[in-house]
């Protein structure tokens, strides 16, 4: 790890000011990804501003929904009774991710800001446009089994690794942030970005902004949802493909549909056309298949990840079937519902 200054912020204002005052400063909360990256010299902050003592660690009812403080640990969100009652999709996605130890340390805000698990990004010995803009992307012609099939650019084919964010995308959460120019609310779909020609930027956060909370809207997908995660072992592994599905059903007709994919793109992937296609239709595998085809029509695989296109197609169909049937995927029983 490089040398850095360490300061502790007592208030949100202090935190924002500390970051504004030092261009090399970074916030640190749970540290589960930042410390990891610092040990690999991928992140070399000049100053760490410890925000763990800020009063952002509560889950409260808010505008008919829930407000998850940025510092609430992932395990706490996953175990929260209100979250489980109203947003079980979120709890399920959290339990699908990482390990109990990591979920105890990782925070809601930190999870939003996790960086990709691309091998090349992590390995200082190789070029990487995300780590070192302009240096190249060896993943495109290298080992790209885990890489993106949707929304990638000529500069970067990395994926976003979070499970939680896939659920939040489907739930259309809002991210509340505060920065030098005050507060603003960022719709979840706009929070993460595609790599384009600036793959070093994962999100639309502006310099000096801090995440205050993630707000869940007053909607009810608690009956028809699933988080289906497919990976290379049965636990403690990142998704090859994951599906967050949330439906509102009227009998066997879909009244409202939300669908987000993980492991396939630089951000949780949604497709408005596919969701619109589902609306008002009967919940059948054929319908689900049509939606999957719409989403994957623009898929662009590489040498080793072509299987993800078919895997995603099948996972979408299966995930929507689970959601429609009200049989969400268990995260402990490894049989797939």
């Amino acid at each position: 790890m490089n040398r850095f200054e360490y300061t502790r912020a007592g208030t949100v204002q202090e935190a924002v000011q500390a970051l504004a005052a030092d261009p090399a400063a970074r916030f640190i909360a749970g540290g589960t990804n930042l410390v990891d990256l610092m040990k690999y010299n991928v992140e070399r902050p000049g100053r760490l501003v410890d925000i763990t003592r800020l009063p952002l660690d509560e889950i409260v009812q808010h505008e008919g929904g829930l407000r998850l403080g940025a510092l609430v640990p992932n395990a706490t969100v996953a175990g929260d009774p209100l979250v489980n009652e109203r947003y079980p999709l979120l709890a399920s996605a959290l339990l699908a991710g990482a390990s109990p130890q990591l979920r105890n340390a990782a925070t809601t805000g930190g999870n939003l800001l996790q960086r990709t698990r691309c091998y090349y990004f992590y390995d200082e010995g190789t070029p990487c446009n995300k780590r070192q803009p302009g240096s190249g992307c060896p993943a495109m012609t290298g080992v790209n089994r885990i890489h993106a099939i949707l929304g990638a650019s000529d500069t970067c084919i990395a994926t976003h690794p979070s499970d939680m964010c896939v659920a939040l995308a489907a739930l259309e959460a809002t991210v509340q942030v505060e920065g030098p120019n005050g507060r603003r609310a960022i719709p979840f779909a706009e929070f993460h970005r595609l790599p384009g020609d600036e793959p070093q930027r994962d999100t639309t956060l502006r310099r000096g902004e801090i995440v205050l909370s993630v707000d869940l809207p007053d909607e009810d997908f608690s009956k028809h949802y699933t988080y289906l995660k497919l990976r290379d072992r049965l636990s403690y592994a990142f998704a090859l493909v994951s599906v967050a599905a949330a439906l509102e059903m009227d009998g066997d007709t879909i009244r409202k549909a939300r669908l987000a994919l993980g492991g396939v793109a630089h951000k949780p992937w949604r497709n408005a056309e596919a969701e619109a296609l589902l609306q008002g239709k009967r919940a059948t595998r054929e319908t689900f298949r049509e939606a999957a085809d719409v989403i994957l029509a623009e898929a662009r695989p590489y040498a080793h990840n072509a299987f993800k296109v078919e895997l995603a197609r099948r996972a979408i169909v299966r995930g929507l079937s689970q959601a429609a049937a009200g049989t969400p995927q268990s995260q402990t029983d490894k049989r797939i519902a």
Binding site: Y6, I28, V35, D36, P100, Q101, L102, N104, A105
Partner: peptide
Amino acid sequence: GKRINSCLALAVQ
């Protein structure tokens, strides 16, 4: 009271 990975926790925190 909670289990964590001590390798990813900065002691000062």
